[in-house]
Design a binder for these strands. Structure first.
Lengths: 156, 156
DNA sequence: CCTACTTTCTACAGCGACTGTAGAAGCAAG
DNA sequence: CTTGCTTCTACAGTCGCTGTAGAAAGTAGG
């Protein structure tokens, strides 16, 4: 089985068939050779490349950054500084995200624990939402989804 | 200044003009009366509604859920159980997200701390990405961006 | 060989929550 | 009157896919 179909590549890499074609379109994978009837033919190297991509996606890297990392991987001997700084930047983005989510967690906890469950007129959840002043110092307003993925991998 | 323009409403609420129009289209705001020349005319109640929306968005609620919360707010006397359970569900989603991001943080830390910064052939970052087996037990594969917002509020 | 089923192909629309663009019109001040 | 700001509508783009439609090709059983 030296010639690998797209479906087989999907099974081996854990990336869906449609997603593989999407990655090709986005330049993460080279256009593969085709069979006489026009079907994509992959090899083990491509499957490994897909594994790389999947892992990087699981870690929340953006496709654009993954393309850069793949290019670096293909240049043995080149400095790994770009890969390193990319990973570091990503790490600090993840940390910021965690901090923001923790602040959210705190305020949501206060909201749901403070509600006496009678009716909407006295609902702490709704009151709190209506009156930002009650917690304006507690949760962040200023960082928008710059890191929205993490732990991807629905995979087939 | 009883009649509030969309720009003024944006300034007061911290929500961009374009986003206000977008919220109207999505049914979070009623279609406001218009001036002779067709411009939207708001009142303080709408500005407060915008504040509610903004706060809920800052907390990461989805627009669909915010619409539900707004409907509940408008029905004093109704049970707040739906609002409560919505907030609780959201809270547990936030917690899951934090846990996933912490796992990511751990692996990213290992990646960047283990790199000796020589060249790509020995780069720990790239090696780790290429070989998922090194950490397959450490980070989650299975939960995809079901909670991707948090701490929004770029706001004008 | 025929039929049924699966896989693959292309091309395009949709998700969520906006943001940005284009082009036109209204409005206020100098 | 001109300049410059605001507002209007309508639509495309962001990100990382997912889902759809319709067609062609491959595979298995009778």
């Amino acid at each position: 089985m030296r010639e690998i179909s797209i479906g087989e590549a999907a099974r081996r890499s854990g990336i869906k068939v449609t997603t593989i074609r999407f990655y090709e379109e986005r330049g993460l994978l080279p256009a593969p050779p085709r069979s006489d009837s026009g079907r994509r033919i992959y090899d083990t190297a491509t499957v490994e490349r897909l594994g790389f991509i999947r892992h990087a996606r699981d870690l929340g890297f953006r496709l654009e950054d993954i393309a850069d990392l793949l290019a670096l991987q293909g240049q043995p001997g080149a400095s790994c500084a770009p890969a390193d700084s990319l990973a570091r930047r990503h790490l600090s983005a993840v940390r910021e995200r965690i901090a923001a989510l923790r602040a959210l967690e705190t305020e949501l906890e206060r909201m749901v624990s403070g509600c006496d469950h009678t009716d909407t007129a006295h609902c702490r959840v709704i009151e709190t939402l209506a009156d930002h002043a009650r917690c304006i110092a507690d949760h962040p307003t200023g960082l928008t989804g710059e890191l929205d993925t993490a732990g991807a991998g629905k995979a087939d």
